[in-house]
Design a binder for these strands. Structure first.
Lengths: 224, 224
DNA sequence: CCCAAGTAACTGACGGGTTAGTTATTAAAT
DNA sequence: ATTTAATAACTAACCCGTCAGTTACTTGGG
């Protein structure tokens, strides 16, 4: 053992107050998604974040708050992105729906964020607060956006009349299946799974399914 | 009939070797579904089953084997039921698909069995064996049944040509959403959720969406 | 029918391993 | 020199799995 480490590069740790929280949250997201809340040990999270357990407690008061932070911090930036993108969306209902799905396919499906639905589904019973948060911030908004677009399409005479609320669920369900499949059963299946193709097929079938039937046109179109 | 309630005399317990395993499995299913595998303590399971922890170990070697038994024992009887019902199914593809969904809506949606998909999704990472079992025994069969019906419908000229495998996923996805919603986020939402209505709407939209172009199907007898 | 003697289902307390959370100490940064 | 990010060893609590002991039930001899 030399008395002096001439290399010097092998520092045990460095102090990076700014970067730690985000790194810890990212590591925790992976761990919680793989093992669930109760199945994840803080030593594992710390190791993956490149620190020790004590460091976690410098930035988060306890395991539960870390979990909540993971969901919130992972979601919020993307929520802004989605809302921003959707606010500058065309007026045509079908096109608005396609945009949302395009966004989902391009930005969510392959990102680390796609583990969150699985987390929420698994832990909703243990974390009612998180369940309500996700429900209000993500599900309700998506459901409202889709139902609104459907309703608008019906009013404009582009779609046949169906319950917009139920149509919204129908539209949401393949997205849910895609992310859950990728993160749960998919890895154990030998057949390839193409989430984007599934979304495309579904949209195709759906729009044909709600298209107006070729019947004699109704009376006068509405203004506005 | 089991002699569960003994009148008057305050017995601490009774010997019921035959009934115990099923009771323990039923209690464990509820606990695991609510809290997940790691979040469930065996004392809780035992208490809900009306016994103590030691009794669990008379019938199951350890917690993990209990969990596997829960999934297997809960699924297998129902699998036989489904397969039996579907073997006596009509030849028409659309009708076969409707039968599967009818069975799902009537027998699964409101039964305690509907918590299993949530369990599988949540614990697939921790129990690859269970994931593979569920994949082979439930998902693959359902997927195969649906894809086969779609393919047959295309060959017969009842449906327009689409990828039967992807169509099967499209068909499965609202069933997944229905059971997961009921068991996770649904209880926290103030809006009512009608899984059967969702299935009906989806089938309606789906069959119109894959109908041959020139000839739209008959109108539904019940609009609105 | 009655009552030991025997059997086995069931209990409950405990050991050992694990992990959430704490704290005394170290060392980077200014 | 002082401050403080980070560590590493530590504590307390929890929980799985075990087992010696208890109790419900069975059996066979009177």
């Amino acid at each position: 053992m030399g008395t002096t480490e001439t290399t010097g590069v092998e520092r045990r740790w460095s102090r990076r107050k700014e970067a730690r929280p985000a790194e810890i949250v990212a590591a925790a997201l992976e761990c919680f998604a793989e093992r669930g809340f109760a199945g994840t040990t803080l030593d594992t999270v710390a190791a993956r974040a490149g620190v020790t357990k004590g460091t976690l407690y410098l930035y988060f008061p306890n395991k539960e708050e870390l979990f909540k932070a993971v969901v919130r911090e992972s979601l919020l930036p993307h929520l802004e992105g989605v809302l921003g993108e959707l606010s500058a969306v065309p007026d045509d209902p079908a096109e608005r729906i396609r945009r949302l799905f395009g966004f989902f396919a391009d930005r969510m499906l392959d990102s680390p964020l796609s583990v969150i639905p699985k987390l929420i589904v698994a832990e909703a019973g243990n974390f009612p607060e998180i369940a309500r948060f996700y429900l209000a911030e993500v599900v309700s908004r998506g459901r409202g956006f889709l139902a609104g677009a459907i309703r608008q399409g019906i009013e404009r005479g582009q779609f046949r009349p169906i319950d917009p609320e139920q149509a919204a669920y129908v539209l949401l369900s393949p997205m849910l299946l895609a992310v859950l499949w990728q993160r749960s059963l998919g890895p154990f299946d030998d057949r390839p799974f193409d989430g984007k193709a599934l979304i495309r097929t579904h949209l195709d079938v759906f729009f044909r399914g709600i298209a107006l039937e070729p019947q004699p046109p109704d009376r006068e179109p509405r203004p506005s």
